[in-house]
Design a protein around this nucleic acid. Structure first.
Length: 593
RNA sequence: CGGGGUGUAGCGCAGCUUGGUUAGCGCGCCACGUUCGGGACGUGGAGGCCGGAGGUUCAAAUCCUCUCACCCCGACCA
């Protein structure tokens, strides 16, 4: 360590909020170099490469082949796929000296597709899975949390090419299995959730989320069966319809001063004529109609009304996911003026729908099935309709999965309660289908000589993000606690004795012994550094085993003198004779591995 | 892009309201000495375009305008 390019910080950097960012900076692993960009210092770079190595080994073991593309690319392939426009402001664009448009790749579907197209033309060439580990660029609206969300980051991206859907499914399953092994080796807990495809396009996709409160994704997981989904992708099933015969007739009631759900419910329960006989009215009995504006990619605007049970909000993320690529904009006062049929606070299904007075497209929550009865706006100030019945008194143009998902909601598979949690996306696997192959005309001949469009999958792992996520899930108050396989060293060797004492020669002898045994050593041989500083630094840096040559250590008497072996994670200490330490540790480490 | 906060030495901060010494403090860094199992101590040092540009003023870290960057909360993603 006396020669190591390292300076630990005694205090937390103020611009770092999340533990991984704080500790990686404090312990001298990374350093901010640009907005959303970090430099790797020696310790950090060792950890990074360990993570990269594990990912690479698992990809290779799965039979995928590594290639490497430039990050700086011409725009044409991305124009062909439509992503030059679709990616929007998140794309780093630049021009070369000739004025040609270039980009820094956010991911490489197009380039992989074109590469395969340029070399392969037969079904006999497939299936094929190739990958790269490469720096990606995304001009994020808000880089944050250090390495967890940068504008420049390293991603392992794989692509599969198959002739048919069954092949795609097999390639997808192989990746899924390889990912499970990879995250297991990285020591990262992951929950596999079904997800939306977003800007990638395509059909089925799953995310590998590491459960973390600092994560940016919200997911639900069933407490009994194995169902799990990103809340964006959660599909609420429609209950069975109720027969309409004999259901109570709807009527309009005078409900003055009830612009909100709560005031309405209170009013109904306080009213002798309107209250229910069986139980009090609740917000869940009301049908809330929310109006938004959609901005389509071609710039056109559309008004959309969404009907959800009144006890639930419309979840903006879920809504965005459903209407993508259109963007959601708020419906403002001026818009109410332009749409006279909509009475703010009293909007009801009576005017909503393409065939109705407003002509506005009306989508309802799947819970609003035929035969359900609602209290909802009567499209007239101060009035609501009671017992308005879906399928009898109104219909919608369709359903939409936009109502918020809550902990305790029923699992769509088994009906048990769902739990809700936050996580960070570590990996994402997509069945792209033929979107890119069609856009870029990737076809192969099948057995009968027919040209068929190739079907693709794309699969990503956030490699640099994984370093942060591992730090995030492996630390305590004192510092980092690396899993052995990604740690910058196996042993952190500390001299704790008077300068000029017997500890230094003992430690030097030990260091040589560790190296000879194939252990990676971080040797704190700094002079004039007090023991307290050494111990604090060792804990901050987080190497899994800390060995202290202290009072009892003397190289001249290796059988009697003792060194302390401390496990960073458990804090367990053992005094081991100097002569036995190397064997003691190698045994311990191989036992774990 | 909207809302909030912050930019002063490598790190953490004070000074700014009410312009006026040579811009301070702690940590870290350098030198010498003491110390040596839980972030030691003394003495002496080095290190600043006070985020940037423009303005007001005899005079600006301090007041005004504009800008840039960072952090947090919301809309996007490995």
């Amino acid at each position: 360590m006396s020669n190591l390019f390292l300076r630990t910080l005694r205090e937390d950097p103020t611009d770092a909020e999340v533990p991984s960012h704080r500790l990686l900076v404090r312990a001298g692993y990374i350093r901010r170099a640009a907005p959303g960009g970090f430099s790797w210092l020696p310790l950090g770079w060792i950890v990074y490469r360990n993570v990269e190595r594990i990912v690479r080994e698992e990809m290779d073991a799965a039979g995928f082949q590594e290639v490497h593309f430039p990050a700086l690319l011409p725009k044409e392939p991305y124009e062909a796929s439509g992503r030059w426009v679709e990616y929007g402001d998140n794309l780093f664009r630049l021009q070369d000296r000739h004025g040609a448009d270039m980009l820094l790749a956010p991911t490489h579907e197009e380039m992989f597709t074109l590469l395969v197209k340029s070399l392969y033309g037969s079904y006999k060439d497939l299936p094929l899975c190739i990958y790269q580990i490469q720096t990606k660029y995304r001009d994020e609206a808000r880089p944050r949390a250090g390495l967890l969300r940068g504008r420049e980051f390293v991603m392992k991206d794989s692509y599969s090419f198959d002739v048919d859907d069954e092949g795609l499914q097999r390639s997808y399953d192989r990746h899924r299995a390889a990912y499970i092994k990879t995250f297991d080796r990285l020591g990262l807990p992951v929950v596999i959730v079904s997800a939306m495809s977003g800007a990638m396009g395509g059909s089925a996709s799953e995310e590998f989320l590491t459960p973390l409160d600092v994560g940016e994704d919200t997911y639900v997981r069933c407490t009994t069966c194995d169902f799990a989904a990103n809340t964006e992708a959660m599909t609420v099933p429609a209950p069975d319809p109720t027969p309409l015969a004999g259901l109570r007739e709807a009527f309009v009631a005078d409900t003055p001063d009830t612009p909100t759900i709560q005031t309405l419910v209170d009013f109904l329960n306080d009213s002798a004529e309107l209250r229910r006989d069986d139980r009090p009215w609740t917000a869940a009995d009301t049908l809330k109609n929310v109006v938004v504006k959609l901005r389509h990619p071609d710039g056109s605007a559309e008004v959309l009304a969404i009907g959800v049970p009144g006890d639930r909000e419309v979840d903006p993320k879920r809504l965005e996911a459903q209407v993508a690529p259109a963007e959601v904009e708020p419906f403002e006062e001026a818009d109410f003026v332009a749409h006279a049929a909509l009475v703010k606070g009293y909007i009801g299904p009576g005017v909503l729908g393409k065939d109705q007075a407003s002509g506005i497209r009306y989508l309802i929550d799947p819970r609003v099935v035929e035969g359900t009865q609602w209290v909802t706006g009567a499209d007239e100030g101060g009035h609501h309709v009671l017992w308005l019945t879906a399928g009898r008194d109104f219909t919608a143009d369709g359903t939409i999965q936009a109502a918020e998902v809550r902990g305790g909601d029923a699992c769509p598979t088994c009906g048990s309660a769902l739990e809700i949690a936050r996580g960070i996306e570590m990996g994402h696997i997509f069945q792209l289908g033929r979107k890119y192959a069609e856009a870029l005309d990737l076809k192969v001949q099948d057995e009968s000589g027919q040209l068929v469009t190739v079907t693709m999958g794309s699969y990503g792992i956030g490699v640099s993000r994984a370093v942060a996520a591992i730090a995030e899930t492996n630390h305590d108050e004192s510092g980092l606690v690396w899993p052995r396989e990604v740690a910058p060293a196996d042993v952190h060797l500390v001299i704790a004795g008077k300068e000029g004492g017997p500890q230094r020669p003992a430690a030097e002898q030990l260091a040589a012994g560790f190296l000879a045994a194939g252990l990676r050593v971080l040797f704190d041989d700094r002079e004039g550094v007090s023991p307290g500083v050494r111990f604090k630094d060792a804990e901050l840096i987080g190497v899994p085993t800390i060995v202290v040559c202290g009072r009892g250590s003397d190289a001249d008497d290796p059988t009697k003198s003792l060194v302390e072996v401390k496990d960073r994670r458990s804090g367990e200490r053992a005094d081991v004779p100097l002569a036995d330490v190397v064997d003691h540790l190698t045994a311990q480490i191989t036992a774990v591995a």
